[in-house]
Structure formats: structure tokens, C-alpha cells
Design a binder for these strands. Structure first.
Lengths: 209, 209
DNA sequence: GTTGACATTGAACGCTCGTTCAACGAGGTT
DNA sequence: AACCTCGTTGAACGAGCGTTCAATGTCAAC
């Protein structure tokens, strides 16, 4: 039985929330117009009244997710006092990694979109922007590291260093989602620490023989 | 017009090749029974005579892909003479990364399967096995590194170090597939080098102040 | 009280998909 | 020559999908 109930903005938000619930449960493969409409308690027709098409819904949902996700690294952009830049960057990587692994559901969904994006230009643009923002969060720390040892990072930019950090975290996410029992994020983090921040004794032993 | 033409094994291989061609062109989303049958020049019915279902075809195709792909790292397992273990590992990472980026098509398809695997147990098992094999290729070098500096990597295993290498490469693949114009693999590799293999002067300057 | 804009519905359309199946023909066997 | 095996076809089925649309109820404005 028809009848006005909610203004457009409210309904749109209700539907987007329902879409997220469906996507979190059944992934993008299970996200159909009927499923979302049912979850939102409305008809399929109404959904396409508020969103021009399923494509539009997918794009709007991704947009909504990205704007409602606290992209990690947003809270610790300022350099902590008394620590070396490399320790600052490491702390960021560690926190981001831990944060990422806690919201596995959302990350899996993000990968669904990532795959979709390889064929869908609009979604690819959104995903790219998100990953760039993610990477850029590491830039200040990366810049400080390079400024500290310009000769060591000769020819490299803060972007390069930030990209490596992002790659490491994304790779860890890949492994942990596929096989959580075998991949240990804490040990991976410790390994990274040992690799790039040798203790004083190991820094000595790292000298050429 | 029906009529016997090829024995089962031959037809199966023909169809698998056709399936790979379709998947490489249109990804898993475009891989339909009819599309594969058409590409192979047979009827859809025949495809399901040789493969029990589309699911079976997907699994067999992944299996076929994995056994027909030279997983990187297979040719340089032996330690090169005269180099430090860390340089050995770095050379492996560098070669694997370059190798991966050259077959973008195949890697994209692999990611499609990866996403599918998060909901499909059989495919997940295959992908896991492949990633474990990938990671294990780094183990000998990782083991040598740890043996060289046991105190530096105290509490860590060759598996951990190998996992970090795999994560780095997979993360680079993620970035490069989504945004090839911005991600530069060579610079990422150089950055990694600078991070973990400081030159003698920078090793000195890395000492605590 | 009437009107009109608009949110809402439910049924329907058309398409594509995976899958089934009766019919058929080529090749080997007898 | 008759027969059986089995690879092969083409048509068809049923389900699910995105999408459309005429009909309908509600609410604000006048």
C-alpha cells in the first residue's frame, strides 16, 4: 500500500544502510536490488526510484562507506615528541595494520570493490582516491625520514616511501583475509622492525665485513 | 550435427584453454558457460558433459592456471655465491616483483579468484596452497638471513620473514594493477633497498645519536 | 474540500544464466 | 549389416536478475 513516508534524503540513507548490511553479510555477489529492498523494508521499485540504477547504488554505497570509514592514520599524523622519524612511521604502520585487521568484514568488501573497479571506471576512480588518501597519511613521516638521511634515500621521494608502507599493509591484509590462521600480523610487524630498525648492536653487525 | 570428434582428455584441454582465453579477456565476471563454449567452438551442452558444472569448470581452470604458471622464485632458489643473504633475498623480491608486473592479466585474474575464494572453500584451498608455495620460495634466503643475525631476528622464524616478502610483493601488485601510472615498482624496490640494506655510511648514521 | 505533487507498490517484461535432455551421428565391435 | 557406445547438438526449462510502469495512497497547499 503506497503512501508518502519519508523525504528523499532519509530514505536514501536508510537504503544505503540496508545495502551495507547486505553487502557485509553476503558481499557484492549477494547484493541484489531485491535483497537490499527487502532488508530496508521497501519495494524494489522504490529503490530504483531513489537510485537511478544498481550501478548508481553500488557507486553511492562505496562513496558512503569511504566517507563513513575512519581511514586509519588520521589520528596520528602529528610526530610524537622524542622519537626518531622511523619509529614514528613504524608506529603508524603498526596501528594501521592492527586497525585494518579488526575490520575484516569491511576490508573484504573493499577488495570486492577493488576487483569490480578493474572493470568499472567510476568505481576505480573512487578506490584510487581512497588508496591515495591512505598512502598520503604516511607522507609526513616518510618526509621526515628522508630529511633525516637524504643521502640514504637519494633519488627517492616521500611518496615512494609512503607507497612501500601502503604496499606492506595491503599485502598483510591480503594474506590475513585469505588465511588468518597462518598469518600473524604481530610477528610480521616485528619482522619489519627487525629489518629496518636494527638495534645498535645489529646496526654494527650490518656493516660490511 | 553431432558426431564423435575428440577423446575426453583432448576436449577438456581445448575447453580449458578457451576458458582461459575468455577469462583473460573478460575476467571471471564474463566467464559464462556459453561464452567459453562459443570460444571453444562447441555447444554449451558439451561443456557440461565434460565438466560437471560451472563450479567444476572454475575450479579446474584455476588448477590448470596454477600448474601452467611458472610461480616466480622457482628459478633462483640457490644462493648466489659471494653475496650476503640479505642481497640474495632482495634479488628474489626484485625478480618476483618484475615478473609479476609483466603478467598483469594473469595477476588480475588471480585476484578475481582470490575474491571468489573468500566465499568458495575449494577455491580458497587452491589459492592458499598457491600463496603458501609462493611464500615458501623465500624461506631458504630468509633462513640464511636469520642464521646470520640470530640475535637481530630473535623470536622470529624464516616463515615470518618470508611472509613479509610475500606481503610486500602482493601489496605492490595491488597498487600497480589499480593505478599503474602512479606506482613505480623500480622506485618501490629502491626504497625497500634503502630501508633494509643501508650503505656503510648510512649504517653508521643509523646508529643512535 | 479539492487538487496536485510525489513516494510507494506490485506485477510484469525481457534478458541472461546454469542446467537438462531427447535426439542424433560417427566409430568400433560383432 | 546390425549394434552399441558415447561424444555432440540444439532446444528448452526455470530461476534470478535489473528495470519499467500503471495504479494508488499520502501529504501539503490552496
Amino acid at each position: 500500500m503506497p503512501g508518502r513516508k519519508a523525504p528523499e534524503s532519509v530514505r536514501r540513507d536508510e537504503i544505503l544502510r540496508a545495502a551495507y548490511r547486505v553487502a557485509a553479510r553476503d558481499r557484492l555477489g549477494g547484493l541484489t536490488i531485491r535483497a537490499v529492498a527487502s532488508e530496508a523494508g521497501v519495494s524494489a521499485g522504490l529503490l530504483l526510484f531513489h537510485f537511478e540504477s544498481k550501478d548508481g547504488l553500488l557507486v553511492d554505497l562505496l562513496d558512503w562507506m569511504l566517507s563513513h570509514t575512519i581511514v586509519a592514520g588520521e589520528l596520528h599524523r602529528r610526530p610524537p615528541a622524542g622519537t626518531r622519524p622511523i619509529a614514528w612511521l613504524m608506529a603508524m604502520v603498526e596501528r594501521d595494520l592492527a586497525h585494518l585487521l579488526k575490520q575484516r568484514e569491511r576490508v573484504e568488501l573493499f577488495y570486492d570493490y577493488w576487483v569490480l573497479g578493474t572493470r568499472h571506471p567510476v568505481i576505480r576512480r573512487l578506490i584510487r582516491r581512497a588508496l591515495h588518501r591512505y598512502r598520503d597519511a604516511f607522507r609526513p613521516a616518510a618526509q621526515a625520514i628522508i630529511a633525516e638521511h637524504p643521502e640514504r634515500y637519494a633519488g627517492l621521494s616521500a611518496d615512494d616511501l609512503a607507497g612501500v608502507c601502503a604496499a606492506f599493509i595491503e599485502g598483510c591484509a591480503t594474506q590475513t583475509i585469505l588465511d588468518p590462521s597462518r598469518f600473524n600480523a604481530a610477528r610480521a610487524m616485528a619482522t619489519l622492525q627487525a629489518l629496518v630498525v636494527p638495534s645498535s648492536s645489529s646496526a654494527l653487525s650490518a656493516l660490511p665485513l
